[in-house]
């Protein structure tokens, strides 16, 4: 068999170990500082991880007990059921409300943010101060969670889905303002120059040079946010701003697990349908190009 001969290379290499070590000392020397450093980094990360859990009150008993209960809940969740036809209709209506919140909220935000996108774009209005202050202002609006906006709007228009619409609109306004202005800044200047070269004014340049390029991008971004808003609109009811979230909150509080699982199923189904439809629309508008999300 050739096996004996092929082992020869290994044997030779090992026989020449001393020579190899002399010729390439750096490879055989254990790099202690580096090894200690990597051990230290791992130790610190793991330590932070473990002590973090400990600091927040995690314990095996608590996790085990909680998992036990979760399994129990999961058992109660089957089969998912709304209880009665009347409740089912209520849930359906709440779901419609959720969709209305997402739809109107996104649309309002898009319409309001549209002019701001142009104002905050460097290539439309090259004013550093305006650019900076608008962008920071939009950042602050973005930095406040949609649930917090909902609480604030409840103070203005009272409990209900209208507050939800306004909350989604406000928080998306900040997002869209930033996204739109970035999209406008990324646009190709040639068309604008073309319009300018025919003697078009600033407004003409924006209308005929920028808008046709930017519009499909913006519409697809808005649709993308509509998808994500459908998800957040499902929970906005937790603070009383309408939609299916309120029912979800109440049913979990009352430990009506069959209702809970039914509601979650309804949400999953709706989100899947919206994703599908909006994905199709986005594809139709912008083709298969990747959309910056």
């Amino acid at each position: 068999m050739s096996a004996t001969r092929t082992q020869r290379f290994e044997a030779e290499a090992l026989a020449g170990l001393r020579g190899l070590a002399a010729r390439h000392p750096s490879i055989f020397r254990v790099n202690w500082p580096r090894r200690l450093l990597s051990v230290a980094i791992v130790a610190v990360l793991a330590g932070l991880f473990v002590s973090g859990f400990w600091a927040l009150g995690f314990s095996f008993a608590r996790i085990a007990g909680g998992l036990d209960k979760l399994v129990e809940f999961a058992g109660f969740m089957l089969p998912p059921s709304p209880g009665s036809y009347a409740t089912f209709l209520t849930y359906l209506m709440a779901l419609a409300q959720t969709l209305a919140i997402a739809f109107l909220g996104t649309l309002t935000a898009a319409i309001l943010a549209f002019p701001f996108g142009f104002l905050a774009a460097k290539n439309v209005i090259p004013n550093v101060f305006l650019h900076f202050s608008l962008r920071r202002g939009l950042d602050v609006v973005r930095g406040v969670d949609v649930l917090i906006w909902a609480l604030i709007w409840i103070n203005v228009v009272g409990l209900g889905p209208f507050a939800g619409i306004l909350a989604v609109a406000t928080s998306n306004f900040g997002e869209f303002g930033k996204l739109f202005s970035e999209a406008i800044e990324a646009m190709n200047k040639k068309a604008v120059e073309g319009v300018a070269s025919t003697g078009g004014g600033k407004l003409h340049q924006v209308r005929f040079g920028l808008l046709p390029q930017v519009f499909p991008v913006i519409v697809s971004q808005v649709l993308y946010y509509f998808e994500s808003n459908t998800r957040s609109a499902t929970i906005i009811g937790v603070v009383g701003a309408g939609g299916v979230g309120l029912h979800l909150y109440e049913q979990i509080r009352m430990l009506e697990w069959q209702h809970v699982s039914f509601l979650v199923l309804m949400i999953l189904l709706t989100v899947a349908v919206i994703d599908f439809v909006s994905g199709r629309l986005r594809f139709a508008i912008i083709g298969n190009a990747k959309i910056a999300a």
């Binding site: 409300q97 969709l99 209305a100 919140i101 109107l104 209900g160 889905p161 309408g242």
Partner: peptide, 10 residues
């Protein structure tokens, strides 16, 4: 929009 405004109690 009309439908949503109705459902969303605008």
């Amino acid at each position: 929009v009309g439908l949503s405004a109705w459902a969303g109690e605008v």
